[in-house]
């Protein structure tokens, strides 16, 4: 894994994606399905029409892009945030809780309010891992991951307890107030969240490539000792802040999902966004602009999978296999490149 954003390393990922899709077609053919029909359905269901693209692919891509941006921010500082799933749910809980109480508010206030509480909730969800890491050296990989299960359990508890809908029958919350719902692009299900995702990507791109703070974060992630001694950077604080904000961004994704798609809190709100987003960020080599592209790609794959299941009778989970193959191939390509570069120490 490389904390360094891409520089002219775009070709390999594209090749890998193309090869993986070709591999998928091959596997389908061997398994006795019609690959042309299958891939055709995949295409129609994701990118083939404006409606599929806007109401399906882009809606699915929105949380992936947001979470991936947060993941990239943390990893740039050397922190591996595997707990976006939990932070997403924390944000969703906060947004739903506030959202149901906002009837009568103007949208202009209600929506930012849900975003703020969701950001805070996601951030708070990482406070424990940050404290454990800073004070006791507990690896954030483990603590953030474990808190995912806590978040899932908490959502289950909330929708059967404090946040359960009024009738008390269904394990879900009341629908959020209209004022807290994100505006849609007319004629589609595409909501304001995509704008938020693109603006955040632009902001992070600027931060990473044009600011001293963004560079120092990279220094902390790639050479913490030199960053502390030569760069005089407070390494612990910088990395901790990056992880906290990364959690906040995942929380924001939760708010966008509740406010733009679900309109309520219920279990299984996330079909593994927090994990797929890691793949999105890595495939984009942590570059914010590229994350939009890979986010849309994975959004298309997962949306198209539904169509493939309907039209060609192929289990939708097959696309998760494709995603996994893409990531493994990418890691392999990285490992090979590292192995091939000339030994730095060997020249002396």
């Amino acid at each position: 894994m490389n904390a360094r954003p891409g520089r002219g390393r775009v070709v390999a990922p594209l090749l890998i994606v193309a090869a993986s899709l070709a591999g998928l077609a091959g596997v389908l053919a061997i398994a006795g399905y019609d690959p042309v029909l299958a891939l055709g359905a995949l295409w129609r269901g994701s990118l083939g029409s404006f409606d599929a693209f806007a109401s399906g692919t882009l809606v699915r891509a929105t949380p992936l892009i947001l979470i991936a941006l947060g993941f990239a921010l943390a990893l740039r500082g050397g922190m591996l945030n595997i707990g976006a799933e939990g932070q997403f749910l924390a944000g969703a809980m906060a947004a739903a809780w506030l959202g149901v109480h906002l009837a009568g508010w103007p949208s202009l206030l209600a929506i930012p309010a849900t975003w703020v509480v969701a950001f805070a909730a996601g951030l708070i969800w990482v406070v424990v891992p940050v404290v454990l890491r800073v004070r006791y050296g507990v690896l954030e990989v483990i603590s953030t991951l474990l808190l995912n299960f806590v978040a899932e359990a908490l959502v289950s508890f909330m929708v059967q307890g404090p946040l359960q809908e009024r009738s008390g029958i269904y394990p879900q919350s009341d629908p959020i107030a209209d004022a807290a719902r994100l505006p849609l692009l007319p004629g589609t299900r595409l909501h304001l969240g995509i704008v938020l995702a693109i603006l955040l990507a632009a902001a992070l791109w600027f931060y990473f490539s044009r600011t001293l703070g963004g560079f120092r974060l990279l220094a902390v992630g790639t050479g913490p000792r030199a960053a502390a001694i030569t760069g005089r950077i407070d390494v612990t604080r910088t990395a901790a802040l990056a992880l906290l904000v990364s959690g906040g961004i995942a929380g924001l994704a939760g708010a966008a999902e509740v406010g733009g798609v679900a309109y309520a809190l219920y279990p299984n709100l996330s079909p593994g966004y927090g994990f797929t987003a890691i793949a999105v960020a890595l495939l984009a080599r942590l570059h914010p602009g590229a994350i939009i592209v890979t986010g849309v790609l994975f959004g298309a794959l997962e949306t198209g999978a539904g169509a493939m299941q309907r039209d060609a009778g192929i289990p939708a989970v097959i696309v998760y296999v494709v995603e996994a193959v893409i990531i493994l191939a990418l890691l392999l390509a990285d490992a090979r490149r590292t192995a091939r570069s000339p030994a730095v120490a060997g020249a002396a």
Binding site: R4, A219, R225, A226, T230
Partner: peptide, 24 residues
């Protein structure tokens, strides 16, 4: 610093980046 490879420089970064690292 004594150990230029871990304390003085960040080897995967460019020379320009290492300049900015040290001069802030």
């Amino acid at each position: 610093p004594e150990d230029r490879t871990t304390e003085g420089l960040i080897l995967p970064l460019s020379l320009a980046e290492n300049m900015v690292l040290g001069m802030g």
